[in-house]
Design a protein around this nucleic acid. Structure first.
Lengths: 145, 145
DNA sequence: TATTGTTATACTCTATAACTATA
DNA sequence: TATAGTTATAGAGTATAACAATA
């Protein structure tokens, strides 16, 4: 049957589901979903950033980010501190436990990424990343609102 | 900020969202979502197929396929006929109106696909399709159940 | 026993509008 | 006025268990 061969959108969706399932399985030991991993990584790379800036960088609506960040805070992985200079914003940072978990998660993610590399080859993986980056620059993209 | 560069899974997710939004916008005039387009196309290419086989080919749980097919039937696009040889199954086919809509949708989809090709080049698009197909063959994939 | 289609249910992700408090 | 964070809500997509009818 195998329908829809040759449609980039469909191939993207199926490949994304496959890779997501593999990544999800890799991180499940830490009770982390891929999206949560992305949040922790972004906060680690941008300590002190606000919720809005982190959620915007990840393409997540700020409204939908509230529950995510609350969960990570409740688990003792993320710290929210009221900004000194702007009473509206919270400064996000990782707790020591958050950094430790992220370190562990990064190792698991590396194993997952190695499976991808084993499948595509190093060159193929680089090609794919380059092509996907170009796709994200599609005219009209980023105008979700 | 731009985090998570170099992660295939993350790049896939973002690119898929971009392409999906573009495809969704292209088909919105027909009140068709990309998933419904895929269903119509699969039925057209496999007339008489059962719900189970179509949903399995598209990676959709049969339970979740019920509402989808009911909607397409209610809109007069898909016909469900009880099989002569197997009283359990329904044979799916497109109505004339379904074929007409699919024809129109295919044209809109082609315009969308042309935008992708304009972004990646013909060669880049072919490379991407090839790489995504290899990704879907990732060991452990297709074992969702 | 196994399979098809179905119902019920639940969880995740996403999208929008409206509110508050701060700026 | 505009922005940050919040709440409420709704719509997709996806996953599992269990059932009736049929094989």
């Amino acid at each position: 049957m195998t329908p829809l061969t040759g449609y980039v959108g469909y191939a993207l969706r199926r490949a994304q589901q496959t890779i997501f399932a593999d990544c999800n399985h890799a991180l499940a030991k830490l009770n982390l979903r891929p999206g949560q991993f992305a949040v922790l990584l972004t906060i680690d790379q941008n300590p002190g950033a606000s919720q809005s800036s982190v959620s915007a960088a990840l393409g997540i609506q700020k409204a939908n980010f509230v529950a995510t960040i609350a969960d990570l805070e409740n688990r003792g992985l993320v710290r929210r501190r009221k900004s000194d200079t702007d009473g509206r914003t919270y400064s996000l940072s990782l707790t020591p436990r958050g950094r430790s978990l992220l370190q562990h998660a990064s190792e698991l993610q590396s194993v997952h990424e190695a499976r991808v590399t084993a499948q595509l080859g190093n060159e193929g993986r680089q090609q794919l990343l380059c092509l996907l980056e170009r796709l994200m620059a599609l005219p009209g993209a980023g105008q979700l609102k």
